[in-house]
Amino acid sequence: MTKKKSPMLRIILIFFVIEIILVFLSGNFSKQLEIGFEHGKFRIRHVETEYNLQEKITEEFQIDEYYKQHGETPEIYGSEKIYNTFKNIFGVEGAVGTFQLLRMLLIVDIVLLLTALFIRKNLARRPAKSQIIFELIYTSLEEFVSETLGEDKAYYTPYIVTLFLFIWVCNMVGMIPIPGFMEPTRNLNVPLSLGFMVVVVVHFSAIKFKGAWNHLQNYINPVKNPLFLLDIVGEVSKVVSISFRLFGNILGGAIIILVVSSLVSFVVFPIGLTLFFGIFVGTIQAFVFTMLALTYISVEITE
């Protein structure tokens, strides 16, 4: 009797093969054993490498601090020209973090733009695979929007979809294993500005639907709203909570991946961690950010 191989077993096998290949390619293995000629004899040597976790974490997460200690060179920026231009614009020491952040944001924007152009060019009545995926994303988010805000306010969908796709691509782009690549959402400036813009959109739509004076009375009139001081604090805490949640999740995931993979660096290449903290947490947090933005809008504009 021939038993069919279960798909789960096959997936685990593929996983192990990829893992073994990556361990040999990842550089840790080849760095530890150096093969070469010495005094005319072929020999395999064990090379001691100094590996400082604290320094590695500083390099990865506080890049300005790292280059302040070690001195920065034009090579980090790619070329002398970019370095000089960047120094002329910002004019401060230790702007490597800003440079990396801007570069990653540019990459994310280019990815989004190219995808949009590609999908637009290949629009067809009988949709291809990529078109189906993006139509699925758009229609499901449109469904959420029209469920929460009502059918007549479905024109908030482009904003919500843009927010979702941007944060999602931001969270995914850090998984590309190239030195210098990082999630832009790992820098607090990106989530903070996104959260601030969400609150701006919330108040703009509240003024649009309720009128400026009616909306302002919630924050200055003690008769109509006895807890108006708490509401003012609540507006600030909205920005803080929505942005720190995204920032903390992505940063915490990145630190856990770095620490665990440096602890086990000579044995395994932790793909599973990247799968969980990169794909799962990244998708969930992008979704949660958009859902919270939608909820804030709906609280203000629906009666």
């Binding site: 909570s241 720190f244 949640r245 920032f247 903390g248 999740n249 940063l251 915490g252 969930i284 947090q285 979704f287 949660v288 859902m291 919270l292």
Partner: peptide, 16 residues
Amino acid sequence: LVGQAVSESTGIYSLV
């Protein structure tokens, strides 16, 4: 999932 992510935020603040 949304509720869990919201209730997780205090943990995230302590992480920060």
